[in-house]
Structures are given as C-alpha cells and as structure tokens.
C-alpha cells in the first residue's frame, strides 16, 4: 500500500471514526449535565425559548458597532478565513468528486483558478490571525496550546492543498497524500480542541439567547 492509498484508506477511516465518536462524546459530555430549570416567570411577551436561541445564533454573527472599533481585525479576518475555508472545502471540484465517492452526493463547483486564489487568501488570513495572536498582549495572555495546535492543523491542510493543486514541492501523489494526512490530523484533533466551536457555537449562543430572551433582555 503506497502513502496515498494509506492516507485515503485506513488513515481517513480511522480519523473519521475518531472525529465522529469524539464529537458525540464531547457533546454528550456537556449536554448530559443537568440543566438549571429556570422557574422564574418569563418577561411578559418573551419569545419562546427555541426562538430566542435561534435569534441569538444569528444575532451573534455581527458584533455590536461599539465593539467593532477595537475588534475590527478579529471580526473581519475571522470572516475572511471562515468563508475562504468554506469555499475551498465545499466548492473545489476535486473535493466535490471526493465527497461524491464517499457519500454519493455532489453539487456544482467553482473554477479551479478561483478556488486557488481563495485558498491563497485564506492561508494569508490564517497567517495574519497567527501574527495577531503572537503580538496582541491580550491574545498572548489568554492563548493556550489548543489555540496554536488548532491553528496549525487548519493551516497545514490549506497549504498542502495549495501545493498539490499547484503541483509544487514534490510529486503530485506525495503532495496529495500529505494533504489527505493533514486533513486526517485535523479530524482527529477536531473534537478535543477549539475546532469544536463549529458545533458548539449553536449551543453556546443559543443557551445565552434563552437566558436573555426569558428576561426580555437584548443580546
């Protein structure tokens, strides 16, 4: 079995299994804790809890203007690499073909040149995020190994993907194998680190939305 076959085969299967089991474990681990049943009467006219939760999930997508002055870079750069990652992962034709081979579903993609440009921009944005983390006194203080590991395991798949697409640095098969292996590492780490926010953001925002909605307070 060559490296590419290993990466696409057992490595990917193992990583996906860890990813799925780890995500379930972590979600169950917090959701199984008993809730604090709030028996206080809700504010008159308060929306139902489910609506407050959904509103909070969307409301939190854009910061209040007053926090944007100091948080503009964090917010704008965050949007750039999140949207960039979504485009690269979901709209690159070889990715779509790969997903189809796994799950049997597909959709139209973007031209390779466009996705390559977006990938390069995403990599630059991730580098900027790292630079900010390493230089901002606040971020330096509050950052944990988790933050740097999560950054690295997001950045490496982007860079190996760009290299594979551009056919630079090594044989295409080797580059592709490294790309797939880097994604395996990403998947294995995902449930244990802050990459999990891709799931947790709904719960976290939703829970506060319910608390505030019940009180008639605005988020």
């Amino acid at each position: 079995m060559d490296l590419l076959a290993f990466a696409r085969g057992p490595a990917l299967s193992f990583s996906l299994a860890i990813f799925v089991l780890g995500v379930i474990w972590r979600l169950v681990g917090v959701l199984a804790l008993s809730p604090w049943n709030d028996l206080s009467p809700p504010r008159e006219g308060a929306p139902p809890n489910w609506l407050s939760a959904i509103q909070a999930v969307f409301r939190k997508m854009i910061p209040h203007r007053t926090f944007l002055t100091a948080g503009m870079f964090t917010t704008a750069n965050g949007y750039v690499f999140h949207i960039g990652l979504a485009i690269v992962v979901l709209l690159f034709v070889p990715h779509i073909l790969f997903i189809r081979s796994l799950f049997g579903v597909s959709w139209p993609g973007l031209p390779n040149g466009v996705v390559f440009g977006v990938g390069a921009l995403t990599a630059a944005s991730l580098l900027a995020a790292l630079a900010y983390r390493l230089t901002s006194p606040v971020l330096k203080l509050i950052s944990r190994p988790n933050d740097y590991i999560s950054w690295l395991l997001t950045f490496v798949p982007v860079v190996t993907g760009l290299a594979a697409a551009a056919h630079v640095g090594a044989r295409y098969e080797t580059l592709l194998a490294l790309h797939v292996l880097s994604i395996c590492a990403f998947l294995i780490w995902f449930p244990f680190g802050k990459l999990m926010h891709a799931f947790l953001f709904v719960l976290s925002r939703g829970a506060t939305g319910v608390r505030f909605g019940h009180r008639g307070a605005q988020l």
Partner: peptide, 16 residues
C-alpha cells in the same frame, strides 16, 4: 449546570 459547561467549552480565545 449544562449552560455553564457549554460556555466553559466554547471560548475561542479571540479577546473580544
């Protein structure tokens, strides 16, 4: 409780 645990899990270390 559950909400506190969800919140302890969710910090992105963004400094906002």
């Amino acid at each position: 409780a559950r909400t506190a645990a969800i919140h302890m899990e969710s910090c992105l270390r963004c400094g906002m």
